[in-house]
């Protein structure tokens, strides 16, 4: 199929986004042609600005437009409590909960020797530094509940233990509001393991 160069470039760009295949890319590109010029300019600017103005907080690794980020600067938050997550999106998910008053640390990945990602490739070094500087008392490790996430959680807990800092792992189990009968066996058995006294 032949497309004029500007549009084929646009299609190409869309296919670089996750979840967008060649057909959707074509549809989006043609949609852009139909849009008002102002809207397109706005869109383009938003893309460039998001990339240019956002950096990673040098303290916690979260995405931010100021350094350190708003969460790190917030004095009303408890610096003795740090929640460790894999991804900036996880911080946003946690923040939606509106109940956590500690601070965060974003690892940007999980340790996976198979993919060539070792401890030095994720944001652990700055975490260790923070433990010393900020008087941290508890680390809540909220990496994903899969093989790599678990390994990363265990790795961090081993690094931190000698310093005498309390390390906890978030619970695994049933989703709230769901029915027991729809849960798979693995989740159910994790939920049984993690049961608590009433």
């Amino acid at each position: 199929m032949y497309y004029p160069e500007p549009i084929s470039k646009l299609i190409d760009s869309f296919t670089k986004l996750p979840g967008i295949g060649p057909k959707t890319a074509v549809r989006l590109a043609f949609y852009v042609l139909e849009m008002e010029e102002d809207d397109v300019l706005e869109f383009g600017k938003a893309l460039v600005n998001a990339k240019r103005e956002l950096t990673h907080c040098t303290n916690c690794g979260h995405i931010t437009d100021q350094d350190p980020c708003a969460i790190c600067q917030d004095e009303s938050r408890d610096s003795a409590l740090i929640c460790v997550v894999q991804d900036p999106k996880d911080v946003i998910a946690m923040e939606k909960m509106k109940e956590f008053s500690g601070k965060y640390h974003v690892l940007h990945g999980a340790i996976s020797p198979m993919d060539g990602i070792g401890p030095e490739d994720i944001n652990v070094e700055s975490l260790i530094k923070r433990l010393k500087d900020e008087g941290v008392e508890e680390l809540i490790i909220a990496t994903n509940p899969n093989v790599e996430g678990e390994a990363t959680a265990m790795y961090i807990s081993r690094l931190v233990k000698p310093a005498g800092i309390r390390t906890t792992r978030i619970a695994h189990g049933l989703p709230v509001g769901g029915d027991l009968e729809y849960a798979d066996e693995v989740t159910l058995s994790k939920a049984m393991e993690g049961r608590r006294e009433l």
Binding site: I111, G118, M154
Partner: peptide
């Protein structure tokens, strides 16, 4: 390429 035994111990435990 790597000298870190901690990660090995973690994977052993898993």
């Amino acid at each position: 390429r790597n000298e870190d035994a901690t990660m090995l111990h973690v994977l052993t435990e898993q």
